[in-house]
Design a binder for these strands. Structure first.
Lengths: 239, 239
DNA sequence: TCGAACCCTGACCTAGGGGCAGGGTCAAGC
DNA sequence: GCTTGACCCTGCCCCTAGGTCAGGGTTCGA
């Protein structure tokens, strides 16, 4: 006959857990000795090890209760299912590990692969980190609000980046962020930008032209996403 | 700007979880629109994905809070540790899977490998399942009450089982369980048993002779572990 | 303009225990 | 015989990471 502590040590379980299993009706309360201590038999030990094993496998206690006196076939089927479940959980943990690595470096976790590739292209082109961040945040918002539109737009945008003229314009626009609003290069840049958009109207008919759309969305979320020079540019182009 | 539902879909998290993160101070409460709805920015989305990833990795929310604005080195160290932790958990799940298989068939989960081997030997020898069960339960109790003694005793017992005479005695004793208490073979069996113990005194000096010890322990836990014939045998040997 | 889908707060519930209070019991050593 | 440390008892509240329900208000598309 075992005391609760001996039983707990045997099964690798805390005393509290055993009492918990009693409360939940998983393990029958054993008899008491003269001083009121619980006294366990080998049968209890066997049952407790089964409970522990199933509990470690993540089976809810309520289900374990049902399983303990199920017939062999039912039990076997349940074990197979539980085993499959663990396999799935292991796979999920593996995926989580991969994501954990991504967490430290890169934006792949936050945007679609296409957008991530696009951001990498920008980085390679020499675009400033500030601009890339604004782009990223813009794409996050777009993808969240309307994934299909974002998917169309990013495809078009990546095609656009294959055009050297557009790339140059993009880089100049990026650089202009830090310019003085009186910089003499601003009017010329405004002209080139306007010409570009005149020559290359957007293809998505019910969507806005991309750059302004992104800028507007991003500006909402990113305080300080504009600058004096950019404000001046906007003035030059609309005015 | 995103609603809470959009944000939840983006991050693959429930609305309730997001509100929970607000309560725990993991994610700052965003501003509200005119009707009191929360409106989220891309920054929130990025932070939420980080939270989700860490939470899926099993990191407690309190720790995630500390990690979110830790410096790069601290964060990297934490991620490495968390990753290691997941690896460990995967290994543990693998072990649990093995045990799960054992759960269906065999006693290896309940007794030491030595005892399990011993039980297998008995089975091979042709010992009844009833006797094997009584033995198993006895060993569980012995191992739990005193693992060192049990370890010594099982070693001795297994040596004993190498002796054909002892095996024969064991089998006869097992068979006698079902005999009538008037069976004429009982006195002879009692004699042989007594002779055996006279010729082979137990080697552990401060321990009782094994068979009776096991029988007594097992009899306590297993109601009906004895039989009329066995009771008669005990009488014949002690009287 | 109406119904579906969305959002709000607040309160309560869950599993699987942990920890503490306040008390009784047992075994060993002196 | 007495003490000391290790056990055991019940009962209570606490925790995490949310889920669920009630009882509202809001927005959007047909």
């Amino acid at each position: 006959m075992l005391t609760i502590g001996q039983l707990a040590d045997y099964a690798g379980v805390t005393i509290k857990a055993i009492r918990h299993y009693h409360e939940r009706g998983l393990l029958t309360e054993p008899g008491r000795d003269s001083s009121g201590y619980r006294r366990y038999t080998a049968e209890h030990a066997v049952k407790l090890v089964k409970i522990r094993t199933l509990a470690h496998a993540g089976v809810p206690l309520a289900r374990i209760r049902g399983l303990l006196d199920a017939d062999t076939a039912t039990f076997a089927a349940a074990v197979a299912e539980i085993d499959h479940d663990i396999e799935e959980r292991i796979a999920q943990l593996g995926r989580t590990r991969d994501q954990l690595v991504q967490l430290r470096g890169g934006d792949r976790l936050f945007v679609s692969p296409e957008v991530a590739d696009y951001l990498d292209d920008l980085r390679e082109l020499g675009v400033s980190e500030r601009a890339i961040r604004v782009e990223r945040d813009g794409w996050i918002l777009m993808q969240t609000a309307s994934p299909e539109d974002a998917s169309l737009w990013i495809a078009e945008k990546r095609e656009l980046m294959a055009n050297p003229e557009f790339c140059a314009l993009y880089l100049d626009y990026d650089a202009a962020y830090d310019w003085s609003p009186d910089d003499p290069r601003l009017p010329d840049l405004a002209d080139r930008t306007r010409n570009w958009f005149t020559d290359h109207p957007g293809r998505s008919e019910n969507g806005p032209v991309h750059n302004p759309a992104i800028a507007r969305l991003a500006a909402q979320s990113q305080p300080g996403a504009s600058s004096p020079a950019w404000d001046r540019l906007a003035q030059l182009m609309t005015g």
